[in-house]
């Protein structure tokens, strides 16, 4: 049975990756998950300089989901390379470095630094960030900004480049096409959906940042629809994510066209969720008599 997949040149032993921001730098979960069994470890989003993030409260649970406004707190690329990457190099699993910036130059410089580090298999760029040089417009919600920043990063790295798309757009397929034309090797989606929650007694937002990103089972139908739209719009592989809690959820994404999947919020509920999902997908393939996970990819019948 062939469970391996390829994402823009990056070979994975199975299609299950972790979603950035939900798995720390891998070490936090190593007590509960044999990292050698994962398709890939996607680390918490990195920036050139460390970031303090938003004030608390940063998390609130909503119906079948959660809002987060962490504010991209991270230790910065240099510390990541020095302190976190050596641990991850001890495993035979590709590391995908998620990164972001607040200007085109910062993205490109971050990509260069990560490109030169030993032990990174691919880059995933988070384009759901505002551009300080373009009136704080969010890169990923503007086709022009998306094209510029992806082109700049493309020139800065030879590593497989995954562009993580924002769902907070009217037509995600058109942004995916722009990313493909600008040199992306793959796209991943969805990032969180912007949302809010309010305390009616204090009349204040439940998050200090007022708004946050919605994730968990609540977003899965939206994510699935977007993966389906993007799959039909681009030729590059799609990494599907958004509310995947179990193997059945993951298989839905594969049928909608995803080559690989990202498991995010589920890690918080069950630290071994990734392994349960891998086992469940394999069991399903055996049950269906399938030889290759590729036999399911995009096989949604309409």
């Amino acid at each position: 049975m062939n469970f391996s997949v390829e994402i823009g040149g990056l070979k994975l032993r199975n299609p299950v990756m972790t979603a950035s921001g939900t798995f720390g730098y891998g070490e936090e979960y190593s007590e509960f998950v044999d990292l050698n069994r994962l398709g890939a470890v996607v680390v918490k989003g990195l920036s050139l300089a460390p970031k303090e993030g938003n004030p608390p409260p940063r998390i609130v649970e909503t119906a079948a989901g959660m809002l987060n406004a962490i504010g991209l707190q991270n230790i910065g690329i240099e510390r990541f390379i020095k302190e976190s990457l050596p641990f991850l190099r001890g495993f035979d699993t590709p590391v995908v470095a998620n990164f972001f910036g607040d200007s085109v130059n910062e993205y490109a410089e971050a990509a260069r630094r990560l490109n030169d580090a030993e032990g990174i298999g691919a880059l995933e760029m988070n384009i759901s960030c505002p551009n300080k040089e373009a009136g704080w417009r969010v890169f990923g919600t503007d086709p022009g900004e998306t094209s510029t920043v992806v082109r700049a990063v493309r020139k800065a790295t030879r590593l497989p480049l995954i562009v993580k798309l924002s769902p907070n757009v009217t037509d995600i397929a058109s942004i995916a096409r722009v990313a493909e034309d600008a040199g992306a090797d793959a796209v991943s989606l969805i990032n969180t959906i912007t949302g809010m929650a309010i305390d009616i007694r204090t009349r204040r937002p439940k998050l200090a940042n007022i708004t946050g990103g919605l994730s968990g089972p609540a977003v899965k139908p939206v994510a699935l629809r977007m993966v389906w739209e993007v799959y039909r719009a681009v030729k590059i592989p799609v990494v599907g994510m958004g509310g995947i809690m179990d193997a059945a959820d993951a298989l839905e994404f594969i049928l909608a066209g995803a080559t690989a999947v990202g498991v995010g919020t589920a890690n918080f509920i069950n630290p071994a969720a990734t392994l349960d999902i891998i086992e469940g997908m394999e069991a399903f393939m055996r049950e269906q008599g399938l030889q290759d996970i590729g036999e399911l990819r995009g096989k949604l019948e309409v």
Binding site: E31, G53, P56, R58, M66
Partner: peptide, 22 residues
């Protein structure tokens, strides 16, 4: 106490402000 999601240091949801940062 703070709202937290993972409990194991990954989600960064439960930070508090201290003299040495979050």
């Amino acid at each position: 106490e703070e709202n937290m999601a993972c409990g194991i240091g990954a989600c960064l949801g439960c930070v508090v402000k201290t003299v040495t940062g979050h």
